[in-house]
């Protein structure tokens, strides 16, 4: 469906994406990366809106640059907010459908259908200035699915959504995947993407750092060098046992908060041995968390690996993505 071969995009002196190679067949993919990591640039390349400085992009077997007929089967929901305060959702989505080549009647019917499907039927005749962020997000999504595309590309679709709307969005995206259609979901929030259970593509600094299924990514996390905090009743005793592990390099004891800050190169061994230590010492662990946010932690670990600062993470890290 989509192939990128050694694709690099430069904006004058700034690198948008850097030497990315990947091959995506039909399926559900989560494009994960911090803000400014190159996700939108990658989407722009796939959509043929920009030309790679180096390398080759193909969409449905063809170079998408200046071949906008390839977009007939693609629905895009960009991260940007639509600024049309006086226009109603129905007018705008109908217009988008007309741009897609449908006649006025057919366009309006499709617009009504997709807006109703996304529970916007009660508000679709009101100007968009009256909409909440969630309603605007659903309107954006309606224009992306109105022409029934095979491939749906969503850029940060969870931005500004309340918990109910997030849940509904996740349900919708899960159903989309179950229908056998393809989805690329770009986000910087791990757990929201994880809820849809896609294959992951992890991008940072314009580089594809890793890719794989959720289990494979969890495997990367377990093997990646990181820091975490354990709050327990006997931190000094636990510290004495943990330092015996070869993978543990630093243990800091905080008596005031009754916690430990542990730095280790391969937490998988440590985590496997932790229940046994607790049993033997009678230590009660109240809380255990990473020092960084999960996604940030993963990216930090992957970046360290790519810089060659730590031991290899696992077979998937830095590998060229070829997902079936």
């Amino acid at each position: 469906m989509i192939e990128l071969q050694n694709v690099t995009k430069l904006y004058k002196n700034v690198i948008g994406v850097n030497d990315i190679t990947m091959s995506l067949s039909s399926g559900v993919y989560g494009l994960l990366g911090p803000n400014g990591s190159g996700k939108t640039t990658l989407i722009n390349l796939i959509m043929g809106q920009i030309q790679p400085t180096l390398g080759l992009v193909t969409l449905f077997g063809n170079n998408p640059w200046r071949r906008d007929h390839l977009l007939r089967d693609v629905g895009l929901c960009p991260a940007t907010e639509v600024n049309l305060p006086h226009v109603t959702a129905l007018e705008w989505v109908s217009y988008m459908m007309q741009l897609h080549g449908f006649g006025l009647k057919e366009a309006k019917s499709r617009a009504v259908q997709s807006l109703t499907f996304l529970k916007m039927d009660h508000a679709m005749n009101r100007p968009m200035r009256d909409y909440s962020l969630g309603m605007r997000q659903r309107t954006k999504l309606a224009q992306a699915i109105g022409h029934e595309p095979h491939l749906l590309i969503l850029d940060e679709p969870f931005n500004g959504l309340d918990p109910v709307a997030r849940f509904e969005m996740i349900q919708f995206l899960r159903d989309w995947g179950k229908q056998g259609k393809s989805l690329i979901l770009a986000s910087h929030i791990l757990h929201e993407v994880e809820a849809i259970q896609p294959s992951f593509m992890l991008i940072s600094g314009g580089r594809l750092l890793a890719s794989g299924t959720p289990d494979e990514v969890r495997g990367l996390l377990a093997d990646s060098p990181n820091q975490f905090v354990i709050r327990c009743d006997t931190p000094r005793d636990l510290a004495a046992r943990l330092i015996e592990f070869a993978s543990v390099s630093v243990v800091k004891v905080d008596e005031v908060n009754r916690s430990l800050e542990i730095t280790c190169v391969s937490p998988a061994h440590l985590l496997a041995g932790l229940p046994t230590i607790c049993n033997e010492t009678g230590c009660v662990i109240y809380e255990m968390h990473s020092l960084e946010e999960p996604l940030k932690e993963l990216f930090s670990a992957l970046m360290r690996f790519h810089r060659g600062e730590n031991q290899p993470l696992g077979k998937h890290a830095g590998s060229v993505a070829a997902m079936k």
């Binding site: 959509m47 809106q49 906008d68 960009p78 940007t80 639509v82 600024n83 049309l84 988008m96 224009q143």
Partner: peptide, 18 residues
């Protein structure tokens, strides 16, 4: 571009010419 609607239009077949 200012109204941020370019992305929606340009992702349509023939959107730029339209």
């Amino acid at each position: 571009l200012e109204g941020k609607s370019w992305g929606f239009i340009a992702s349509r077949p023939g959107g730029r010419i339209s």
